[in-house]
């Protein structure tokens, strides 16, 4: 007996893990006024983290740091507009060289350390949260 029909295609289909559709089960669906509603007190813990950009000092600092770390020449997901960007960065980089090669090198090393440290701290962010295990539970 299949409760949740199988995914239609490898990359595009989605399963329906409870967590991902919780808000629909709790916030959508038919409501009948004459019925008593179960209290939803305590359900807040299941709310999804705020992920959109919130204007705050923390966000600003995080973005500034992220830009600083951004590897513009070898980003894993280079945007289509990137070749232009790399060209310009290289140009301005060349201008910057006249300031002195030594400080440039020192900076690169300290950045490499910083990067290595932060990489060690941050666990990789899942690209998408397609759950396959729960689907098995929902199938018999």
């Amino acid at each position: 007996m299949t409760v949740v029909p199988a995914q239609q295609s490898g990359s595009g289909g989605g399963s329906s893990g409870l967590y991902d559709v919780l808000e629909l089960v709790l916030d959508r669906g038919l409501v009948i006024d004459a019925f008593v509603r179960v209290s939803l007190v305590g359900i807040e813990i299941l709310k999804i983290d705020i992920r959109v950009v919130v204007a705050s000092v923390d966000t600003y600092l995080r973005f500034a740091e992220a830009c600083n770390r951004l590897d513009l020449e070898a980003g894993p997901k280079r945007s289509p507009g990137l070749p232009d960007l790399v060209g310009e960065i290289t140009e301005s980089g060349a201008r910057g060289k006249s300031k002195g090669a030594l400080s440039g090198a020192a900076q690169t090393i300290s950045e490499a350390f910083k990067e290595a440290r932060s990489e060690g701290e941050e666990s990789p962010r899942p690209r998408s949260r397609r759950t396959t295990t729960r689907r098995k539970e929902e199938q018999e």
Binding site: V52, A55, Y60, A64, N68, L85, E88, I89
Partner: peptide, 30 residues
């Protein structure tokens, strides 16, 4: 890009530099 580049060259930039860049980046992302 120029702001980001300047910060990078300054080893990340001062606290104020970071805020200035980050605020504008955040607005653009929003």
């Amino acid at each position: 890009r120029a702001l980001s580049d300047a910060n990078r060259k300054a080893g990340g930039g001062s606290y104020e530099d970071k805020l200035r860049l980050g605020e504008r980046i955040a607005a653009a992302v929003q």
